[in-house]
Design a protein around this nucleic acid. Structure first.
Lengths: 205, 205, 205, 205
DNA sequence: GATGAATGAGATTTCATTCAT
DNA sequence: TATGAATGAAATCTCATTCAT
């Protein structure tokens, strides 16, 4: 295991190495898919030996866990504050969609990688590794906006969980489209979704 | 591959075995995911030796191809006629959502399996095996309904491709929910989606 | 095992089947090599099931043994009488070379197949299956001609075993050439060998 | 394949391992034939796990390729200079035969192994792996000596390609004899071939 | 006589992981 | 910290053979 260094936390170099490896893992996941994201492949990208990866992360799954943390983290860090800042529930929803798709546009590899893990990262016995806890984090946030909007009268009546899931899936739809259509105009896509879910949610006159 | 049956095509027993193995493959895919859907695991479920699977399908991929054919086939056979029969575009869309979710309800393993393959079934060189051609089949069908409805004035203005993808993803959202919430009321879920996309698509007064 | 039929020996049909299968084995060996000469491949060529081959020959090796017998048999049947008929030792040698290459010309597949087996047909423990007994049959026959010629004064002094082996190998040389040069003029090749070994063997003036 | 050694090429230990494995492959090929020269058998001989072989050579074929290179290399390195040094065409031919058989004497396993590969080493689709290019290298070298000798008047008229092939095959004849007669006196065999081909080639008085 | 179905042994290859240096 | 070497488990696939019909 890693030797202690004087400042007690991970050294600067250590952090850099970890970040580099995580980034390479993201790239491999995004470009070649989960199945090809082997230790050897990741190490090769990072131009280090497999052992280095194991050394820093304990095991292969450790890298993926870090990828998830990293990607979730940066996504939330970028999206949440903007959503919080929006005044109304409807505004928050619009902001959410725009922020998510802007972030997707700027971090395609990150999101593709997360998607690969989302679908495939499982424990030894086949159970999903990214299940409720992680999914909930995302969907619940949307759900809270929706229920708030319903309470305030901005939104019409609908099942918040269903709507929330549909919204989350709509964003993933953009991600999927990107796979075969890399030139997709995500800003336009975002506006379409904004309009779509505005009609779907807003209080009827 | 087994030697050609010169006369009558696959025998009754042969067909039964194939069906049995395909079903086991579906179950393994649905319950344990693509990565654990190995020859050994599938054979174990079917209580036959690995060789039997190879004997009947030539290679592992042959099983998966059959799974796709089977699942696509039964899904389309059930959904399409009902959609065709609906009179208006709006009716077709409602019927599509209901039919898809009813079918999902009755064929959970099938759909989970298809989903696993959808995400992971790749060729030797990493290219998706279920890519554009298959995806298009589904999304395009929805898109055609949408554009027809826009022409007839039933639907308002929106990007048909984006709406179509969102609808497809909404259905998959139900599938994902099922993973962690097996008691989900899919009929209610369907009605929510029907209402949601009705508001999202219908011509404004 | 095969059921008795009234005339005690193999029935006519039985013999025909066996011949057909042996011929197919020869073709596969000649065209695709020993390693690809599998039971399945041979059966496929013969348009029968693998089981038929096993039924008639007991096991795969039985087919190959029959191939050897067949090819050796027809080769000897054609070459030996002509050699016997030649008056002198020198004449026998010339006749041997011409007869062998004519036979090769007319039975390319047979000889290629024999060659494949010669090189590869081994017992379970890796020992050659076509060793001394079979090789000797061929080389010894040549050797006898050579020693006779030396006794009669037609041939000069040399080691008969070495010369015999060299002659046998010279014929196989033609076979090898055929592999990459199918249009090779074997009659001309024969005359070259005749002249070559005439100079190499004949009594010096 | 092992990860690249970025600095100095193969390490000393690496080279030793590779050499050891190649040697074991040669031994297995020579003693048990191509078909039994499996990864498992080779590894067993080398007293390492199968994975080690794969680790060092990437795949089984890599070992065989190395065997060919190794054996071809040492054979040529020993024979060619001696042949070059001989003054006349006749002298070169004599030297060639002696050098080849001396080398065979000292490297029986090497030559048997090469022979096995020669006959059996094929690509996925059944094509010979050691075909024209490699064969030509050997036969052409002999052919050049022969045509030179004919031009200079040392040799009589004959087809150089046929003579060259016959000479090559004569050497292989010795190799074959060794299989069943390990005590064969190769020096004497060489002198017999020298005399034989001297008579067969030299200009008539 | 003949066949399809099934099987098990064994071959190659991939890959995460361990370990000595 | 880092690496090369080694390993064993597991995966896919091939193939001769057996067996019930």
């Amino acid at each position: 295991m890693r030797s202690k260094n004087r400042s007690d936390g991970p050294s600067f170099l250590e952090a850099a190495r970890r970040k580099q490896i995580v980034q390479c893992a993201i790239d491999v996941l995004a470009e070649e898919g989960f199945r090809r994201a082997t230790l050897a492949r990741i190490a090769e990208r990072a131009e280090v030996s497999k052992s280095v990866v194991v050394y820093h992360f304990g095991a292969k799954d450790g890298v993926f866990e870090q990828v998830v943390a990293e990607v979730f983290g940066t996504a939330n860090a970028e999206v949440q504050p903007r959503v919080q800042a929006a005044p109304s529930a409807a505004g928050k929803l619009r902001t959410y969609l725009r922020a998510r798709l802007e972030h997707l546009d700027a971090n395609r590899a990150h999101m593709q990688a997360l998607f690969e893990l989302w679908m495939n990262f499982r424990t030894e016995d086949g159970a999903m590794r990214l299940g409720e806890p992680d999914a909930t984090e995302t969907v619940d946030a949307i759900e809270r906006i929706l229920t708030a909007g319903q309470k305030s009268g901005e939104f019409t009546a609908f099942s918040a969980p269903v709507m929330a899931m549909t919204i989350r899936q709509a964003v993933d739809g953009a991600l999927l489209r990107l796979r075969t259509e890399p030139d997709l105009d995500l800003a336009a896509y975002a506006e379409e979704l904004v309009a779509l879910f505005d009609r779907a949610t807003r209080s009827q006159a």
